[in-house]
Design a protein around this nucleic acid. Structure first.
Lengths: 224, 224
DNA sequence: CCAAAAGTGTTAACAGTACACCCATGG
DNA sequence: CCATGGGTGTACTGTTAACACTTTTGG
């Protein structure tokens, strides 16, 4: 029987708070890297028999996220990012990490609290995360996740996972702006997304968003 | 000590032969699925100690490809695709497969011959691969690889990995056409790729491509 | 000289950009 | 009534798509 690697799932968790892109870091309760910041994650549960082979990778990701941060399973958008497997990336033994990124609606973000192997858990701005002070190769994972969402935001529907279920156009615009780091012309952005309405991808929702000034119409993402 | 999964790397290998997109299948020499068609791959070599943790995932992929098909290591373009880990995808035990896709220049394609755990190895047209007769979940892996290269071909440089080192514009166009399944206007396609020349991404190479009719200029991919 | 592919030119349609402007609301 | 963001109109610009056309070769 040949030796096998340990396999973990790790998650880069994003949300938007105060029109700022945040990511979720936990403080490690156990060695290695005890006390250091890390992204949530943990080992995949594998069965001992051919019949019962354990949980799926995505289930493991949902479970670890839920255990360490209190976010309810199924409430966040999850997508596999990349598998990191460089020998030596964990000092104990060979560990592969199947990395996922998660998008959390701002309405859920306040639910986060530390649990499981996490001594602490909190949202950190992507512009000021402690690049050099993260456990393992988590800085590298994080960079790749950022690159990925920046690349995907304007040709996929992921932006809709970072706004409340019903949202105003300017809330959606704020998501794009904070992820791309640029600003968009409100009128042009508006038209671009209203084309989605004629295509049936979004629909107007009842109610208005009242935010001090003129109330805005709200929309709901329907799907493709 | 918790049970660990076995970890394999599997490869979806593409080339172009006779203006047709082909992929590489092998015939399995060993159970499970002995005698069935499969994509090349094998287990990652993992060390027994913390000091010596074994080979990297990409090295494992290069090694397995070389062993089973005779393609020289380092001669093909490799990129990680996705990690498949559904419990039960291997009847023996829990096995994760870190899938890669590989692009082989048509000049190298004839070097392929079966070796290692492969009883046979050959190129099959993507339009007629034996969808229902593949081992494990290899059909699913294959579909995802196709989707990926189709999505990436027109905003990345992967097309240059499927032509000889020096190529004519129409050879490059043929690659795009066969992957996208559409046809492009020769004039428009030409201009689009000549913009890359002014950007220094491709440069004209000495010689011409003589193919029956009017000879075509040849180019070389330089990089970004 | 003819067929066929290489290579060039021209135009219309369209999407993105910039920016001017009106509208509705809370303070 | 005014400041502010919501919402609309429009002119300009660059890119793409369609297609007609010329050039160069082998047979």
């Amino acid at each position: 029987m040949y030796p096998r690697p340990a396999v973990a799932v790790d998650l880069v968790v994003f949300t938007i708070i105060d029109t700022d892109l945040k990511l979720l870091l936990i403080s490690r309760k156990e060695p290695p890297f005890k006390g250091r910041w890390a992204i949530p994650g943990g080992f995949v549960r594998v069965g001992r028999t051919a019949r019962s082979q354990g949980e799926s990778l995505e289930s493991a990701a949902q479970r670890e996220l839920s255990e360490e941060t209190g976010l309810p399973e199924g409430a966040v958008y999850l997508e596999q990012l990349y598998t990191f497997g460089r020998p030596g990336r964990d000092p104990r033994t060979r560990v592969l990490s199947v990395a996922y990124y998660a998008l959390v609606r701002p309405t859920l973000a306040p639910l986060v609290h530390a649990g499981g192997d996490a001594a602490d858990a909190g949202w950190v701005s992507v512009t000021e995360f402690p690049r050099g002070k993260l456990a393992f190769d988590h800085a590298e994972i994080l960079e790749m996740a950022l690159e990925r969402i920046r690349g995907k935001i304007d040709y996929t529907d992921i932006a809709f996972e970072l706004v409340p279920e019903t949202f105003s156009i300017s809330e959606l615009r704020a998501v794009h702006e904070v992820i791309q780091g640029t600003s968009y012309d409100p009128g042009n952005f508006r038209r671009r997304f209203l084309r989605m309405q004629t295509d049936g991808i979004i629909e107007q929702a009842p109610g208005k968003r009242i935010t001090g000034k003129r109330p805005a119409r709200v929309y709901r993402f329907v799907g493709r």
